[in-house]
Each structure stands twice: as C-alpha cells, then as structure tokens.
Design a protein around this nucleic acid. Sequence first.
DNA 1: TATTTTTCTTGTCTTATGTAAACGTTACAA
DNA 2: TTGTAACGTTTACATAAGACAAGAAAAATA
Lengths: 230, 230
Amino acid sequence: MFPLNCVANCSALQDIDYKKTISLMDECRNVSPYLSAFKQQVEKMVVFDDEEWAIITTHLSLKTLGRKEHFVQSGEICKALGFIVTGSMRLYHIKDGTEKTSYFCTTNDFITSYKSFMKQEPSVSAIQALDDVLLITLEYNALQELLDNPVTARKMERFGRLLAEDLIFCYEDRMHGFITQTPEERYATLLHDNPSMLQQVPQHYLANYLGITATSLSRIRKRIFDTIKR
Amino acid sequence: MFPLNCVANCSALQDIDYKKTISLMDECRNVSPYLSAFKQQVEKMVVFDDEEWAIITTHLSLKTLGRKEHFVQSGEICKALGFIVTGSMRLYHIKDGTEKTSYFCTTNDFITSYKSFMKQEPSVSAIQALDDVLLITLEYNALQELLDNPVTARKMERFGRLLAEDLIFCYEDRMHGFITQTPEERYATLLHDNPSMLQQVPQHYLANYLGITATSLSRIRKRIFDTIKR
DNA sequence: TATTTTTCTTGTCTTATGTAAACGTTACAA
DNA sequence: TTGTAACGTTTACATAAGACAAGAAAAATA
C-alpha cells in the first residue's frame, strides 16, 4: 500500500513547495504497482492486449494530492485525465465568491474537467481532493499520442467514446432528477441508491450537489428521519 | 424542398396506419438530396473521404414525423440516432402522469435517447416532434456495421466519441446552471444565449427545462420585463 | 489533552415556488 | 360560425426554500 500519510505530514508546507516535492517523488515512482485496478476498470470498456498495454503504460503517470489540494484550479487548463486509485475528490464552481460542489468521485472513478481537458481551454470548475488521493494520470499529449499511434488508436478512440458515454448516462439520470424531482425526493433517491456517498461527503457539499442550501438539506433530513421514527 | 405538408394532412389518421404510410413512403425515398447539411455537421467532427461516405450513406435512412408524433416512446427501445434536417423536437419524461420536458433539439442537431440507444434498453424518456420533422436516421445495427467495417471503424469510433463529448459539454454547462443559478438567472441566461429557442418553444415546456412550473416562469417573466420597463 | 476549525442544526424572517382553479386568447376543425 | 383544445397569465393559499445569525457538535490540529 502506498504510504499516504507521508503526504499528509507535508501539508504544512506552502502549496508551491509541496507540489515540487511531490513531482520529484513521482519521478522515482513506477505506475505498475497500482495498475491492476486501473486495468480492471478500463477493460470493462475495452480489452487491450499485452503489446497495447505496454505502450499505454509508458504514457501514464502517478500523482499524489494531499487533502484539499487541487487537481485543477478554476481558470487553469486541465492537463490530465485522472483515475483515482485511492481517496475521493470533488468538482466545484465558484459563484459570488462561494464554492458550489457539483460532483464527487471516489476510488476506481475517472475524473477530469471534461471540456477543459478535451479542448485544452481554461476550466470553469475546480477539482479538489477530499482525502489524500493517489491518482494514475494520462496527460493530454500522452492521450493524443495513443490516439495517433496505429497500434492503439482504434481501441483508444473506442475507450474515449465509452468513457464519455458513461458520463452521459450519469448526466442523463441526474438531469432527470433535477427536472422531475423535488429536492427532498432527490435526497431520498440518493439515500437509496448511494448511501455510502452520504456518509463520506460533508453535508454542505452534498447540498450543493442536490441544488439546495446546507440549511435546507438539514431540514429535509429532519423531516425524513422524523417521519421514519413515527 | 421536401413537402412536409403532405405529412400534416395525414395527421387525422390513427397512429398505426399513419406510421405504416410513412414507412412505405420512405422506401421510395433516397437520402441523398438531404445529405449536405448532415455531411457538414459530421465533418465538423471527422472528415470522411468519398469511399467512406459511400459506405455510410447506404446505412442511413429518411424518416418523417408529423407534429406530436414520437421518435421514441417511454419504455420503448430507441432504435436510431437521428439528425434533424428540418423541424424541432423535445425530449420529455413522465412524472405522476404529467410530462416534463427536459431537452430541445432543432435543425442540424443530432438526437437520440442516449442510454437507451447505446445499450438497446427501454428508454426512460420520450422524444416527440414539435413541428413536422424530417430526419436522417442511423439505426443501431447500421451503426454497429460501420463500427465493424475496417474501412469506417476508426473514424466512426472517433465520430461517436466527439458526438458524445459535445453532449457532455452541453450537460456540463446545464448542470452548472442548476447548481449555481436561481431559476430567474437560468431564464435570463437562456434569454441572452439562446433567444430563438424562447420564441419557438411553448412556455410550459420551457418551464420544465428550467426546472420550474409554468406559473413560476410566468411570474419570472413579469418580474424581468417590469424591471426592464422601469 | 487542549484548542482551533469545520460542520451541522436551529430559529426567525422574507421571499419564491408549487398547486389548483379561473380566465382570455388563439388556432384549428367540425 | 361554433366548438374544442392548447396555451399563457393571473389569483389565492399553503409550503418550502433562502438569508442570516447563533450556538452545538464534531473533527482536525497543535
């Protein structure tokens, strides 16, 4: 297991020094010990053979983020697609100076600021670690190389398509909830479909995700749990 | 120009007879006169050469829908990806017996019930024509053939990826609106970014799209236009 | 352990929204 | 012309949500 605590111990360092430290540490680190979960998730979509994996692997990097560190800042270009080996993250927007969380990712999920990454333009959203996080990353240039390489091109296009489609399915469901359900129904649905998320994530983040305020979510919870008791 | 009025004139016929009529009419119709707009939109994403277009074209069909006719019904498997040559359509869900519109498409847009089409499973949403509509369609099996054909496979995978990505960009923006904006701000944004849509679409559909009731939208409009007058 | 920060709940007040129903207008068909 | 259906607006009323503030509880940190 990767010693995540060594990251946490550095968290008093300033942002910039800290990042340098990590990137130097990364140089010495090989992706391979953490590849199995990554391969497993990728091969749910496309099965690559050994030759292809050999190429892909050389295009991957490891990245560690301490709690509250950013994968992308708002206004920055998102440089990589991430795969979360351990930990969890949130995606948020800034509105009137306050943060609005709109998405969560956890172990075995892929994460990126999609439009920013694919178009290499400044991101409107930021992505931040909720815990200490270990990521496998695929940088934009590395992805382009895999899409250009005749050995990997065809399957990488397909992988990209299926990854995008999964995100669409997720958005379709979520949008469906916003259009057809009340905030209370959306919370109840989440409680039913994804109870683990509710325990891992601070409520005020969750409130944003549901499109309401933290105050309102607290009252919804009270309403629901009072009803259950009765 | 395609004589859409001939479709409208049949609209008194029962659903099932009507559909038969149209499908018979379709047999005699060649896609080619309507291809240019389609090609233009596709080639914003991927440029196909003549040999590839020749193959693709044989996999396309034409479909006409009269006003209020359905492209997909809720619970049905969505059989095709559509490209709107003329007309406009809406996507809606049913909640407590009432319809909730969640998406609009118009000329030069691609439309499908994504999850249903890609997984060939029953659709949770329905897609209906708002006008008389002329569509170029690509059926699921035809798409699979293009993805299997070595001549077209690589570029079709890419086309699929880029089409999916465009939809993600659209969802990202929309979700951003739901998380960070009030209904009034969402309406104002739409008024600014897409004024033509507001004029083409009935307000009660628009209200659903914004996540509010028609009553509330009417009040919002009154507030906004009163403010402008002052 | 003690202290600080973050998170959650509660209360009050104000405002926006949903529901349901009524009304006027328009488009279309009988 | 008349009738019907669809659409947009308005009203009254009840409810829920937002803003703001205070305090409790929990978690992170020293």
